[in-house]
Amino acid sequence: MTPGRFITLEGGEGAGKSTQARALGEALEACGFHVLVTREPGGSEGAEAIRSLLMQGDIARWSPHAETLLFAAARADHVEKHIRPAIGAGHWVICDRYVDSTRAYQGAQGIDDAAILALHGFGSRGLMPDRTFLLDLPPDEGAARAAGRDPAANDRFETRGTGFHAAVAAAFDSIAAAEPERVRRIDASAAPQTVTAALIEALADLLP
């Protein structure tokens, strides 16, 4: 049995993570791999219930500390119920956001990175991706893309100000700079097909 792989897509609002997760999954399936495409927060029944709490309501509904705990709880359930079993079965898992999003979004609100990783170590037993793609898009361009969506789909994070999203982008930059072997930057400003091709090329070393 070929080893399972765990791939995550990260980035700010409007970077195309959901689109690229689906496209990459289809490309890998066409190559004969079993693929699970999933998302965070969510991906399991329990995690989806927590997602509705996290993503809906007023911006001030949760404190940064409470948000961090809720994200960690959702991730723990997701990892236990779906991600680890799929990897163990030799499947490829592609996840739209993972712990790096917590590090960026809650880190931008003052939560210490070491505390986030400690929660991840406890709740999800420290599971990290084999490869993380940071879809690189300037925050203003991402905001313009997000503005074109159905306003009813906006969540508590998308509606925050430009200063917040600039801080999130800076946090992602720091993660990518600190972990270049795991995190690969991909230009998300190109056409979707071009971005997908770049993702596949950047996975060449993990393919059998």
Results as ranks from 00 to 15, higher is better:
residue 68 T to H: 11
residue 139 P to D: 03
residue 196 T to F: 08
residue 91 H to F: 05
residue 91 H to N: 09
residue 137 L to T: 07
residue 24 L to R: 01
residue 169 A to G: 12
residue 77 D to C: 04
residue 157 F to M: 15
residue 25 G to Y: 02
residue 81 K to L: 01
residue 207 L to K: 11
residue 28 L to Q: 01
residue 59 I to N: 06
residue 208 P to H: 07
residue 142 G to N: 13
residue 72 A to K: 02
residue 53 L to H: 10
residue 45 E to V: 13
residue 86 A to S: 14
residue 6 F to I: 05
residue 42 G to I: 00
residue 141 E to Y: 08
residue 142 G to Y: 12
residue 178 A to G: 11
residue 5 R to S: 01
residue 26 E to Y: 04
residue 39 R to A: 08
residue 84 R to K: 05
residue 177 A to C: 11
residue 119 L to C: 11
residue 66 A to L: 06
residue 183 V to H: 03
residue 191 A to K: 13
residue 149 R to K: 14
residue 205 D to R: 12
residue 137 L to D: 06
residue 106 Q to C: 06
residue 44 S to L: 05
residue 204 A to D: 15
residue 138 P to A: 11
residue 202 A to M: 04
residue 27 A to I: 02
residue 131 R to K: 10
residue 183 V to P: 08
residue 145 R to A: 07
residue 57 G to L: 01
residue 172 F to W: 11
residue 47 A to V: 04
residue 202 A to L: 01
residue 48 E to G: 03
residue 69 L to E: 02
residue 26 E to N: 09
residue 166 A to I: 10
residue 168 V to Q: 05
residue 45 E to Y: 07
residue 158 E to H: 10
residue 91 H to Y: 02
residue 124 S to F: 03
residue 83 I to W: 01
residue 144 A to V: 13
residue 206 L to P: 12
residue 188 A to Y: 08
residue 115 A to P: 06
residue 56 Q to F: 09
residue 80 E to T: 04
residue 204 A to Q: 14
residue 21 A to N: 04
residue 145 R to P: 12
residue 43 G to S: 05
residue 78 H to C: 01
residue 144 A to K: 15
residue 70 L to C: 11
residue 82 H to F: 14
residue 138 P to F: 08
residue 70 L to G: 12
residue 87 I to E: 00
residue 175 I to T: 11
residue 58 D to H: 11
residue 123 G to V: 12
residue 143 A to Q: 15
residue 112 D to I: 07
residue 122 F to L: 09
residue 161 G to V: 10
residue 102 T to P: 12
residue 114 A to Q: 14
residue 2 T to P: 14
residue 11 G to Q: 00
residue 166 A to D: 13
residue 169 A to D: 14
residue 180 P to Q: 03
residue 59 I to S: 11
residue 54 L to T: 00
residue 63 S to P: 04
residue 136 D to E: 04
residue 162 T to R: 15
residue 72 A to Q: 02
residue 67 E to W: 05
residue 51 R to K: 06
residue 189 S to G: 14
residue 1 M to C: 14
residue 115 A to F: 14
residue 15 A to T: 12
residue 39 R to C: 04
residue 105 Y to N: 03
residue 108 A to Q: 13
residue 135 L to C: 05
residue 135 L to A: 07
residue 45 E to C: 08
residue 99 V to A: 10
residue 22 R to W: 12
residue 186 I to S: 08
residue 16 G to A: 06
residue 79 V to A: 00
residue 114 A to E: 09
residue 150 D to S: 10
residue 16 G to T: 02
residue 11 G to P: 02
residue 133 F to I: 06
residue 52 S to I: 04
residue 27 A to Y: 13
residue 77 D to T: 10
residue 200 I to H: 07
residue 5 R to G: 06
residue 6 F to V: 00
residue 76 A to R: 07
residue 194 T to A: 15
residue 36 L to R: 02
residue 195 V to K: 08
residue 178 A to P: 02
residue 163 G to P: 11
residue 88 G to Y: 00
residue 48 E to T: 07
